[in-house]
């Protein structure tokens, strides 16, 4: 066993020397970013992208990513709030899903308890129907919902997630009772895609990027995106431009622990802001297919408060929160 480990180690060293290029560190920050999700997920890749960019730009000397998966991120958030209080070398990546999960899991902690540093990216959600559906526009969809909300079958990601919230908002603005929505939850956009292509659903909601291929090939018809403004390269128009007062962005941001203030906070804010404005970060965002949705600390703070209230209201209306 030890023999084998030694060999494995040697090989790993050989292969791994290229992973960490030496960087002339302009900063001596040694940071740890908590990704409240398992390796390979959205928050994990956001955390690792930020790690890559901060080290490439020299805004931090070393950055480590720690994965704390569980319960839509609430386990990681609770641990972060509990153990990192006041620590100026700890960061957390989180997003709108965590806002919803804190509410529907009745979690004792939520994002208003941590210190927002910056909003980073925001991806649009898209509303689609199968290609041979008689529904041609968002107005057709609204009419279908109004006619019979029960037989309008929606598919999308997990119950109480951003997809479910958007479907509920649309149902509500069609004049139907959102608590009567027939939303079939899947583990994510991928599994829901199969249900869309198989023709088992009336309409579907997912992150635009996840279904982009099928939309461009014509297998799915995109009716609208949930972003407030039109986006270059996306043909579907925003819901707002089509007369519905709905916007919902799947945003991700970076946070410091509670109790970090003064000079410590300024150092972290500067490091994050410089990283986000760098070319390296812009390249990563582009390569990953994300949409830039940057907002600085102050603006982000107000945004978190308003999102929390809004999400709570919608989840209550569909019966997922008290």
């Amino acid at each position: 066993m030890r023999q084998f480990l030694k060999t494995a180690l040697c090989l790993a060293v050989l292969a791994g020397t290229a992973v960490y290029p030496a960087v002339s560190a302009a900063s001596d920050l040694e940071l740890t970013i908590t990704a409240p999700a398992g390796a390979g997920g959205g928050w994990d890749s956001a955390a690792r992208s930020l790690q890559e960019a901060m080290m490439a730009t020299g805004e931090a000397k070393s950055v480590q990513v720690v994965n704390v998966p569980g319960a839509g991120g609430t386990v990681g958030l609770a641990q972060f709030v509990g153990s990192a209080k006041g620590a100026a070398d700890q960061l957390l990546v989180a997003g709108i899903t965590l806002v919803g999960a804190s509410i529907s899991n009745n979690s004792p902690v939520d994002l208003t308890q941590v210190t927002p540093l910056a909003r980073l990216t925001g991806d649009p959600l898209v509303v689609v129907v199968p290609k041979d559906s008689p529904i041609k526009s968002i107005d057709d969809l609204l009419a279908t919902i109004k006619k019979d909300v029960a037989t309008t079958i929606w598919v999308g990601g997990s119950a109480g997630g951003a997809d479910h919230i958007l479907a509920a908002l649309i149902t509500k603005s069609a004049g139907a009772d959102p608590s009567k929505i027939n939303y079939v939850a899947y583990s994510g956009g991928g599994e829901a895609l199969a249900a869309m292509l198989g023709g088992q659903a009336t309409a579907g909601v997912s992150g635009y990027g996840e279904w982009e291929g099928q939309i461009k090939s014509g297998d799915l018809r995109a009716l609208a995106i949930s972003y407030p403004e039109p986006i270059d390269g996306i043909e579907a128009k925003p819901l707002k431009a089509q007369g519905l007062d709905i916007e919902l962005v799947n945003w991700r941001g970076i946070f410091a622990p509670p109790g970090v203030e003064g000079e410590d906070l300024e150092t972290l804010q500067a490091a994050v802001d410089n990283t986000v404005k760098s070319q390296q970060w812009k390249d990563i965002v582009k390569a990953r297919g994300w949409t830039d949705y940057y907002a600085p600390s102050d603006e982000f703070k107000g945004f978190i408060a308003s999102e929390t209230e809004r999400v709570r209201a919608i989840l209550t209306s569909i019966g997922l929160a008290q």
């Binding site: 890749s45 599994e191 199969a194 291929g213 099928q214 390569a287 990953r288 297919g289």
Partner: peptide, 27 residues
């Protein structure tokens, strides 16, 4: 389809995207 059906496949999808292979109906 660009459809990851297992945890492994989800990680693979991230890998393909890094190599500029965008799995999907057009691939």
């Amino acid at each position: 389809l660009g459809l990851p059906t297992s945890a492994t496949a989800a990680v693979m999808l991230a890998g393909f995207q890094q190599y500029n292979i965008q799995p999907g109906p057009l691939l």
